Simulated assay, not measured.
Amino acid sequence: MSNEENIPYVVTGKSYTAVAINCAAKAGEWIKTRLGQFTSLNIKSSAADLVTEVDKGAEIMIRKLIMTHFPHHEILGEESVDPGREASAQALQEAKEAEYLWIVDPIDGTTNFVHGLPFFSVSIALAHKGEVIVGVIYDPMRDELFVAEKGKGAYVHGKRMRAAKDPALSDSLVATGFPTEHDEALPNNLATIAALAPQVRNIRTIGSAALSMAYVADGRLTGFYEWNLNAWDMAAGSLLITESGGRVTDIDGNPYHLGVRDVAASNGAIHESLLNVLRDAVPQR
């Protein structure tokens, strides 16, 4: 083990990262107490795109905490944006010029939460002039906090994370999801699952893009991809992965930025092979 990995990870009390951790932990603990006890369930863009009063309450809680510390920062939160690709793109366009932009998904994995399946997370990122500099993903059911700071590495349980060492697709465990947009994104994902399944060790669908990306960062998954995601699904996870030695791009191999919707993330070693399979399976994008 290198000396770098022996150095304890310390977050100073007034830092951006400390605020992100505090927000994620407080919201996550409250969300955990509401599992199976939500009172309202609404459909957004499709029957698979759900929201409860817990999502909305958690976002309000996070917003208030952030604004207490950084009243001049901007916040882009999932539950403050109308459903659909166009509304998401417009909201990002309006917010991305902010010097400091917090990007919040109060519950990533709402469908799991609604059904009592304990795989969901709180995702909070901070971008400075469009570049993600802090990423925090908190899994309240397992009390796992994944944290990354730009240039300082990524950590879980205070220990440095490293992407998986799997050298080839045949050694890889890859995750994806089933998009809520059924006209194009869902057929794309189904086509790629059929193409990829014979070439990898296996495929998983966890139901939380943020948690999937955290698992790529920690080497539990070799890769993850999905169509039609939003900035709040990926921003924190993108930094976790790159700070763990992995790679995040769009499906065409271009570097990740906040406007990416069709994402591929991996340990780096399998990245080009993964992209080739995805592009071959869906040549018209």
Rank of each mutant, 00 (worst) to 15 (best):
Q93V: 02
I124E: 04
E99L: 08
M141Y: 08
D139F: 07
L126E: 12
D105I: 00
Y100K: 15
A91M: 09
E99D: 14
A95G: 07
E99W: 05
V136G: 00
A89R: 11
E97Y: 13
D105R: 03
K129V: 15
A98R: 12
V136F: 01
D108A: 02
Q93G: 10
L126M: 06
W102P: 14
H128T: 13
I103L: 14
D108E: 01
H115A: 00
A95T: 01
E94T: 09
A87S: 13
A127R: 10
Q93D: 10
A125R: 04
H128N: 15
V122C: 13
T111F: 08
I107S: 03
A87L: 13
L92E: 03
E99P: 14
A125N: 12
F120I: 04
V132Y: 07
I124D: 04
I133M: 11
D105N: 02
A87K: 02
V134N: 00
W102V: 00
L101T: 15
T111E: 09
A91N: 07
K96P: 03
I137W: 04
G135C: 05
E99M: 04
V132Q: 03
P140V: 06
L126W: 09
A127M: 05
Y138D: 01
A87G: 10
G130V: 11
P140I: 10
K96S: 08
G109E: 01
H128F: 05
A95K: 03
Q90A: 12
G130S: 05
L117C: 03
V122L: 06
G135H: 05
M141E: 13
G116A: 03
G130N: 06
H128L: 06
I103C: 02
S123N: 14
S88Q: 07
P140D: 10
A95L: 12
G116H: 01
E94L: 07
S123Q: 01
V104S: 03
G135V: 13
Q90R: 13
S123A: 06
V104D: 03
E99H: 14
A125Y: 09
V132E: 00
Y138E: 05
G130K: 08
L101M: 05
E94A: 07
G135N: 10
A95N: 02
